[in-house]
Design a protein around this nucleic acid. Structure first.
Lengths: 244, 244
DNA sequence: GAGTGGTCTAGACCACTTC
DNA sequence: AAGTGGTCTAGACCACTCC
């Protein structure tokens, strides 16, 4: 005989999820404080937090650290099989994108850089860290490594737009193919701080490895997304034989 | 002045993550019980659980409900832009796949089915629920809706392999294109039970909408994956103009 | 029956935000 | 200064697994 009791934290979750779905709570609206919910539903604060964290992991609400819990807006669609820039994609879906430069620096290729980018040990590497916003809200942090030998002085150019465009226009570099990898993973302390979420909050980790005409890695990009921001959407056209 | 104190649950996380990385703990090895960890590190059990749940969300460990915590094996690569069947993909990566039929039934198109599949209200729909395993471990549950008018009697065929192959060989239906959508989301009670995880555990929700030659929806598939099982990996080849 | 994880309570202190 | 969320303790009971 299985346990059929529904725990309190899930009942509270259902109640709040219902309020959100029925738009009793609007996008970006603030929820009552944890202590208020605790009193209103006669539950311990720990239990209330369990319900809130459940809703957070479902992408229905988000939090601003030490400020409160808020209702999430709809997700941004992202098609990894297309080469649409973040800026264009956000605009196309009716929102306002923004890019902030967090830091830019010159590195020397480490063992790790050598392995992931094939750059010889000690060769120069540009590191650019940016934060991307949608409607004024930080949604992702990216660390961009660029093979500096191919594009000296890159960091002196305006970096708040498409890097691919800069590489093409100033250095004649064309990205011939890009490898995209991603999986759900929590945001660590640094990224979390930039995104104004608590360390360990759920996220989506995405890497992008871009090769030029000579099949050399030009750029290696690590993106740390808030998990509740995007929905991956792509279309596969079938040719000839297929299975499953 | 920001808070620079590292909370106890993150310190324990780091300790255990280190043990896993250095292979002090092997794949599928069982961790000490929560109470043992609690005693060994002089922390409250709630705090120990916070550390364990953090590691779980990172995909480093997984749990068997009420049995304990175990070290996760490496992820399975999955390329949504290709049409490789689950079975073939798992085998290609050196593991043993398996498919279990959970249920099969005949439905009548609801408003929701009408909206997602374009099937007229009241028309017949096949519903197939399957569970997929890797090396004997349940990794995903899928709900497959098929337009029954296009393939009467489908459910009488052997359903533990590729559906696409069945549709092609028995009904002459060819999938011309497939729309794939996905985002991180927790596993609800039912799916969680099939996957032997706790309700609300992190997961990846993936849908697949398949169209035939006449651009009709043949199949609508909802897949609920354990989050720690897969890594999405795809390659984008650039043609002509691109940006970012 | 002993041990495990799942849930829950009733407190507490702290860093930070808001006013 | 008051209120918020972030962390933590020391218990408790339960359903379930393992033996």
């Amino acid at each position: 005989m299985k346990d059929l009791h529904i725990p309190f934290y899930l009942r509270l979750r259902d109640k709040l999820a219902g309020d959100i779905e029925r738009s009793v709570l609007q996008h970006h609206a603030k929820l009552p404080s944890e202590r208020e919910l605790s009193k209103a539903y006669d539950l311990n604060r720990v239990t209330v937090r369990q319900a809130l964290m459940q809703l957070e992991s479902e992408g229905l609400i988000y939090r601003l650290i030490r400020r409160g819990w808020y209702v999430s807006p709809p997700r941004l669609f992202y098609d990894p099989s297309k080469n649409i820039s973040f800026m264009d994609n956000v605009r196309a879906q009716g929102h306002v994108p923004e890019t902030i430069i967090l830091s830019k620096s010159e590195l020397v290729a480490s063992v790790w850089t050598n392995r992931t980018m094939g750059i010889e040990l000690g060769a120069p590497v540009h590191l650019l860290r940016r934060c991307r916003m949608i409607d004024g809200r930080a949604v992702l942090v990216e660390h961009i490594h660029v093979n500096a030998k191919l594009c000296p002085g890159l960091l002196e150019l305006p970096l708040d737009c498409s890097l691919t465009a800069l590489l093409r226009e100033h250095y004649g570099i064309r990205i011939s193919r890009t490898r995209v990898n991603m999986y759900p993973a929590p945001l660590n302390g640094d990224q979390a701080a930039e995104l104004n979420v608590v360390a360990g909050a759920p996220g989506l980790f995405l890497t992008r490895t871009s090769y030029d005409q000579n099949d050399q890695v030009v750029e290696f990009d690590q993106e740390f997304w808030r998990h509740d921001i995007i929905e991956i959407a792509l279309e596969v056209v079938n040719n000839a034989v297929d299975s499953e």
